[in-house]
Design a protein around this nucleic acid. Structure first.
Lengths: 170, 170
DNA sequence: ATGGGTGCAAAACCTTTGCATGTAG
DNA sequence: CTACATGCAAAGGTTTTGCACCCAT
């Protein structure tokens, strides 16, 4: 994952500020720091991981309660999606444009890869319709094992990874 | 959902007993009552709902701790799958044979429908392979709104349903 | 009789909330 | 200034655990 170009970052921050103003919400140090961190760092983070990273990155850090509130706000704003990967806590993901994708999760180390399959995408609204639903959203998660894991009975990324979010290896 | 034929029930209970014996586990009143209830009643239940239903069905009921333990055991045994539908608590589902299916969840009332799409099923292992994974499992959840809901801005099943598990309407 | 299973209550988690304080507008 | 945002600590909800007691084997 390449570093976020400065211009993209600025765009995103602007987009967020605009949203806040439009919604009569205040532009606070906490909101901007959380947003900036999310815009720059890797995906599939938890509130826990955000709190930790922000504590190291900035002086006083930001309380969990506030992070929970800001993350919810950003979900409302359509800038984050929420995931349930069957792990203990919720994961969030920044939506840069609208480019949707699904996930493959390693059952051993928790590593998360992304993919899009246009055929599957096309089939889903049809299925929903057939059942009398209008499709609003979906989540497709594949659970598997790395090839190395299958061979050695242990994923090479284990320990190192165990989804320390930020460890987005490709 | 038709009532479970008695013969099926017996088969399932036998299957469970066999598993317990094979694993050097004891056949207890609690384990058999939980299993029987699961085999007979509807799907997508929570530990909470199981506890409630068992309290009404049997005399002393069964403690939550024990139910959690039995449910985990049955997941291990491959007789249940665990789901995260983005709701607060985990849902479980009995696997009668191996007939897999995916889910459509109503965003308003939480009603859960099932479907299988063979095309999607076929595509998934290919995708996993392309990413260097061996597919072990997957979950595909479609989130939408009933047609009635779209019209009236309210799902006809609301209140009545709100996923009181057991309310498996088709 | 004995080792595993159960029930209870407590602990461990994750997430939300009430309230006093701080601060953007 | 004033209303909204934050931080803290407490509460809420789900799941797990320690331990004494119970009961299949």
């Amino acid at each position: 994952m390449q570093p976020t170009p400065a211009s993209d970052l600025q765009n995103r921050l602007d987009r967020f500020e605009t949203y806040l103003k439009k919604s009569d919400m205040k532009i606070t140090r906490q909101r901007m720091q959380v947003a900036e961190h999310i815009f720059c760092s890797s995906n599939h983070f938890t509130v826990e991981s955000l709190a930790d990273e922000l504590k190291h990155k900035y002086r006083p850090g930001i309380s969990r309660a506030t992070i929970y509130r800001i993350v919810s706000l950003m979900v409302e704003a359509g800038m984050l999606t929420e995931h349930n990967f069957g792990q203990n806590s919720r994961r969030y993901e920044f939506i840069p444009g609208q480019k949707h994708h699904d996930h493959i999760i390693c059952l051993d180390c928790g590593r998360i890869d992304e993919f899009v399959d246009s055929e599957i995408e096309k089939l889903q609204p049809k299925i929903a319709k057939k059942h009398g639903f209008t499709l609003e959203d979906h989540s497709l998660n594949l659970y598997g094992r790395c090839v190395e894991l299958a061979r050695k009975n242990r994923c090479p990324h284990h320990d190192a990874a165990v989804q320390t979010p930020g460890a987005q290896m490709v």
